[in-house]
Design a protein around this nucleic acid. Structure first.
Lengths: 175, 175
DNA sequence: ACTGTTGTGAACATGAGTGTTCACCTCGTC
DNA sequence: GACGAGGTGAACACTCATGTTCACAACAGT
């Protein structure tokens, strides 16, 4: 039940960041008072959603062995991250989220292992070394985000997403 | 003066979509009353910003000859679109913007010439034909968006952006 | 049966954003 | 100097999200 709440709240607030807490409560099928009891203020709710999303990401990434061959790691990451959909989108796009110092710090820490992985891939010649590591990482996020959008809009079948994301990210759009 | 207003309003609302009209007016250095005279309701303002941004895009793209060789067109597009920065970001990311049918329709129409250009490039073997045209286009938007973010965060020098965007988009991150 | 926990709706006070009106000011134009 | 077109702050009423309190219902564990 509680797991559903953060999921629903994420979806509602992502669809309309100015949605009222009443809307969130109604969508979750609980009373507004109950929502207030768990999350005294709106900010508390938002931070909790961010924290939960970061937990989900940490959990998903914990399964991925970043020391394996680059290509396999990327396969795994895409397979793990794409299904997270709105949860990760919330982290990357929710307006004003980075203003909370704790969340900002966690977001920053989330990038660290990935940045190290990219740097390693570059040193080993698996990834282009003429691009900044952060650029490679953010491009990766961007392509995944594009895939989510397409899935949400019904343009892309979820099962097609990993192939599209990986081939575009690795090889670009030139034949 | 009026040109500055839409620019400032775009920046303020993009940084915080829930910013009050008072905040917008103050940032623009005008009275809230004056803002109300030009844009009677908040929705009027938002739609006007979207319209103005679409005008800017139309104007920028009108200069680009989409029938020239693929690579040159992409060069031109990146050079034109990246500097638009927040204006185009507003179009792509402002929450709830697509709910206005007129704006949604214009957004859709904005994509048409680009989609045709991509399709042509695919037929001529300049772009991979095994990817949907809309995917290629949205990936392109995504990379440009990533570049804006990096510029705004001070990580990327504006003059470096076109090279980074184009090389990543065309060739991917594999050596 | 008793009790503590949890959820619930109703009601209230508060504050903020919004849209409107009005009197006043400051220009450039005639 | 008169005039009209914008721009301005002050003030008002209205709506709505918010946070809080309260009394009550459901339920689990004792």
């Amino acid at each position: 039940m509680s797991v559903h709440l953060v999921d629903i709240a994420t979806r509602v607030l992502l669809a309309d960041p100015s949605a009222s807490l009443g809307d969130v409560a109604k969508a979750a099928g609980i009373g507004r008072t109950t929502l207030h009891k768990r999350y005294p203020t709106r900010q508390d709710l938002v931070v909790a959603l961010a924290d939960s999303a970061l937990d989900v990401v940490d959990e998903a990434v914990a399964d991925v062995d970043l020391t394996r061959p680059t290509r396999e790691v990327l396969d795994d990451l895409v397979a793990k991250l794409v299904p997270l959909g709105p949860r990760l989108e919330f982290l990357l796009r929710f307006p004003g989220l980075e203003q909370d110092p704790r969340v900002a710090e966690r977001l920053d820490r989330m990038d660290q292992p990935f940045l190290a992985f990219v740097a390693t891939g570059q040193q080993q010649g698996q990834l282009r070394a003429d691009l900044p590591a952060w650029w490679v990482l953010h491009t990766f996020y961007g392509v995944i985000f594009t895939a989510w959008e397409a899935i949400a809009a019904g343009r892309l079948a979820p099962l097609d997403a990993p192939r599209l994301v990986l081939t575009t990210f690795l090889e670009g759009v030139r034949p």
